[in-house]
């Protein structure tokens, strides 16, 4: 369970939000919306522990995330604006090294299988710079498939995806939530995840 109480964020001279709080239970997800510049990405970065909040507290299973450290980082999978792919490396190499840096051993066979399930079969050996935006995003999203984290925090995961990939991601999210996982995501398009509890969190600009 993730609880946030009284969060505030200041960027430069602007107060983006204050007094923000929510509780996220297993099996539920938060749909974070708001105009451009309302602080969605800032909030996500605070939630994963990259940036400190101006005020307020975030607790994971009852303990402050700052104190949990590695334990919390193990519980969270974050996908930001950037895909964290190296242009020079192939899709397969990107997936394997990405997993290794998270401390997970992913062999080439397993990586190819994961790439197949995000619809990139046959492109395992292609350097990432030859992939389209949507395909790069798919490689980045394949991270969710080896992730063992209960909490997924995704910044605009649907950007650049085609209809089939959107459906695949929605189904993956539904499966994750059905298994007791949690998710927080931002999106500029309507998201429908079947059989799940959704909370909407709107940040005012």
């Amino acid at each position: 369970m993730l609880t946030a109480t009284d969060l505030a964020c200041v960027r430069g001279d602007r107060r983006l939000f204050s007094g923000l709080g929510f509780t996220l239970e297993p099996g539920a997800w938060i749909y974070l919306t708001g105009e451009n510049g309302s602080g969605k990405t800032s909030l996500l970065r605070i939630l994963v522990g990259l940036s400190p909040a101006e005020a307020g507290e975030i607790r994971w299973q009852g303990s402050a995330i700052g104190r949990l450290g590695d334990e919390y980082r193990k519980a969270v999978t974050y996908l930001g604006h950037h895909n964290a792919l190296k242009e020079e490396l192939t899709a397969r190499e990107n997936l394997c090294t990405g997993a290794a840096m998270a401390g997970i051993n992913l062999d080439a066979g397993r990586a190819d299988a994961l790439l197949g399930s995000v619809g990139l079969a046959g492109r395992e050996e292609l350097p990432a710079r030859f992939l389209s935006q949507g395909q790069k995003r798919r490689v980045a999203l394949a991270r969710l498939l080896w992730s063992e984290s209960p909490l997924w925090i995704l910044d605009e995961p649907f950007v650049a995806l085609d209809v089939a990939a959107v459906a695949w991601l929605a189904a993956t999210l539904a499966g994750h939530l059905a298994a007791g996982g949690m998710a927080i995501l931002t999106s500029h398009q309507e998201v429908l995840i079947e059989g799940s509890t959704m909370q909407t969190l709107r940040l005012a600009a």
Partner: peptide
Amino acid sequence: ANDHADGTLEQMALSPVP
């Protein structure tokens, strides 16, 4: 710089590996 620009550094900082 490259790892910072493409988001890899973020993933490193969020990894359970020190």
